[in-house]
Amino acid sequence: MSAGGQDLDSAADEHGTGAEQRDAGHGDTAEHGATAFSAVGSGERGAAVPPDDGRFRLVLVRHGRTDSNVRHALDTALPGAPLDDRGLAQADDVAGLLTGWPVHAVYSSRAARAQQTAAPVAAALGLDVELLTGAHEVFAGELDMATDEASRAVFDETFAAWFTGDPGRAMPGGESGRDVWARFLPDLARVTAGAESGRTGAVVVVSHGAAIRLAAMALLSGVDGSGTERPDAAAGKDHPIPNSGRVVLRRDPDGWTVELWDPLPRKRS
């Protein structure tokens, strides 16, 4: 698996739903820096609720599956493809996983697939979906909607460079890592305001694979000024997020900490 765009809106590395998830199982998330509440390291994606520990949590959720994922197309422009039938089922499934969480608000990127994923999550929690202007996927420019291996290789190489000291490098005719930070991090700062001074509960932000991984790096490394750098700040480089997968960051006094990173499902033998 490549380091870069395997969970961009091009790959069908999706979670199954219901019994399929339990049958397939999920790997231990400890390698991603998760500091456990009961779901972490259990071998499957469970609906455990985080402890009532007075901490605030940012729940980043990747959208469900689309036809572009199945075709391995680099689908990065707005509004993008809608969810397919499996993606709609995944959205319902992740809504079930988050029922009972102390969520105060549900946000979504402007992409159709993200809004469709956020809708059942918000409904399950009795909330409305609020749109974020900067939470959409990394724009691949000239590579947008490409399906060939050469284009994917260019995307992956550029994406990897953002994690190894060159976030200013841009996709051909598209965005750089710094461009994505410039639009996404202000949104995250707004929706998590007060987390550093005692705010509790959680917010859900439905976004996209590459954008979530890049934003998580910024928060975990303190690029946004939110805290000190974590040892696993670059975990997103080599850990794609499956369709409807969650990345949960907990706000500690000295910055953000990875609490849960849904792994790719194990392939059946």
Rank of each mutant, 00 (worst) to 15 (best):
A89D: 14
A89R: 14
Q90H: 01
Q90P: 07
Q90C: 05
A91E: 04
V94R: 05
A95M: 11
A95H: 09
G96E: 11
L97S: 06
T99A: 15
T99M: 13
V103R: 03
V103Y: 07
V103I: 08
V106P: 10
S108E: 03
S108K: 02
S109W: 07
S109C: 12
R110T: 15
R110L: 15
A111Y: 11
A112F: 00
R113C: 09
R113G: 13
R113M: 10
A114P: 01
A114T: 13
T117G: 11
A118T: 09
A118C: 08
A119I: 00
P120W: 01
V121N: 03
A122Q: 07
A122I: 03
A122V: 04
A124W: 05
A124L: 03
D128H: 02
V129W: 06
V129C: 06
L132V: 02
T133G: 14
G134K: 05
G134V: 02
A135S: 13
H136W: 10
H136I: 01
E137P: 00
E137H: 00
E137S: 01
F139R: 14
F139W: 09
L143D: 07
L143H: 03
L143I: 09
D144S: 14
D144F: 00
D144W: 00
M145S: 12
M145T: 14
A146G: 15
A146F: 04
T147I: 12
T147P: 12
T147Y: 02
T147S: 10
D148Q: 07
S151G: 15
R152A: 13
R152F: 13
V154T: 15
T158W: 01
F159Q: 10
A160R: 13
A160C: 07
A160G: 12
A160Y: 04
A161N: 06
W162F: 06
G168W: 04
R169V: 06
A170W: 09
M171P: 01
M171Q: 13
M171N: 06
G173F: 08
G174K: 05
S176L: 09
